[in-house]
Amino acid sequence: MPGTRNALPDQPDDAALAAARELTAQLSVLRGTVRRDRRVTSLPLLVLGGTAAAVMVPAIVQPTSMWTDGRFGAALQSMAIVAAFAAIWLAERHRAVTAGVGTGRGFGLATVAGLVLLVVPGGLVMSLIAGPFLTFALGLLIAGRKQRNAFITWFAVAVGLAGIVNDRHWISNRLPGPHPWAEPAISLALALLTVAAGLLWWRQENRAA
């Protein structure tokens, strides 16, 4: 953004309108460039979605194994999602040091919130009842709010609620016939939806810059 002149000096309306439009367009490009440099929306969605998908696949392949079924399986999946938040936090911290842009604060808080859910007895009971999507939604919601990222915030609410409802079998119980794979399959679909959203945002961030 070269030049240090006033953004809208005294000028006729047509010139003022053109100057205002040009300035807002330039600011929009700048913000887009920062978003691309930080991979602000795509990185969290890809890492979280990829991690969630990786831990959901064994639950479909072996739905009755102790590692994937029931509350023990849910606790392991929640731990993997907390690890994903920590990985995003470290990636953002690394980018802040090497590229000089961004902070990992939102995802640092998300990691702490996820750990609290797993360590504090009340939180652990809640996450065992609601399943791994509680950790997913809470962490993503905190990060989205902290970073003023509307898409991440609403995505956390929508996918988190769908995941929690599914974990309580409110969706799979409405399907005709017994399908032990239905609940993990829906969870996997939500994880893949997150990855798909991440890929779309990756393209969007490239275009906006």
Partner: peptide
Amino acid sequence: HQRARLAILSVLAEAGQA
């Protein structure tokens, strides 16, 4: 309301810190 300062603020709003 100065082009360069507005740009700095816009970048920082998106970056958190830079």
